[in-house]
Amino acid sequence: MTRLTFTTRILKPLGFGAALGPLVWLGWHAWLLAHDPASDALGADPVKTIQVTTGLTVLVLLLLTLTVSPIRKLLHYSELIRVRRMLGLFAFCYVLLHAVTYFVFDQSLDPGLIWSDTVKHPRIAVGFIAFLMLIPLALTSTDAMVRRLGKRWGRLHRLIYLATGLGIIHYLMVQKLDLRVGIPYAVVFGALMVARSRFVYQGPSRGPPSPQRGEGDRG
């Protein structure tokens, strides 16, 4: 099997299934709750459970999306690009779900309530801005848009760094007291940004020597 077929026929479907996991879990528990309101499905505060689950999934998927380029360079595994759009679009699906639960269940779709909550509470504003930044990225994810935007596409999609950073800050701000829960995300994000500046945005001559390909990445 070539690496390309491994990536598109095995890795991508596996990634698709895994990325769908949280949604399936939430859907299954929502169904249980709908059929037995007294059940403990989704916990005492289902809306909060949905918001925490979708929010954390967004962070994980954004960080995975950012991992694709460094891995391609480091492991000379350029075919991995075939999973990046999927990861990014899943991140957008979850952020949409995250935002919609907030609009519907927290603010009853009242624009006035949403506006006043956003301007009064920095943690909401930060999350809102990160969400808005991801919208143009999802809209320009098609092949046609990639072609049409050309070089500008890459520049536009650097917004993902800012959106991910703001997403992590939003997660930290939501915490009442214990900021330690955000450390893993912040550390991974920092490491990815460093990896990116060393391996992605620099020519191969200035980067570290290329590692030999081992058994594992032959696919």
Binding site: P37, A44, D45, P46, V47, F105, D106, Q107, S108, L113, S116, D117, K120, H121, P122, R123, M173, V174, K176
Partner: peptide, 19 residues
């Protein structure tokens, strides 16, 4: 009087979806 983190204008009664 809002908390810097949470609006106090509305609340979610546990067991209900809307505030």
């Amino acid at each position: 009087v809002d908390h810097p983190r949470w609006s106090q204008a509305r609340e979610r009664r546990l067991g209900e979806f809307y505030k």
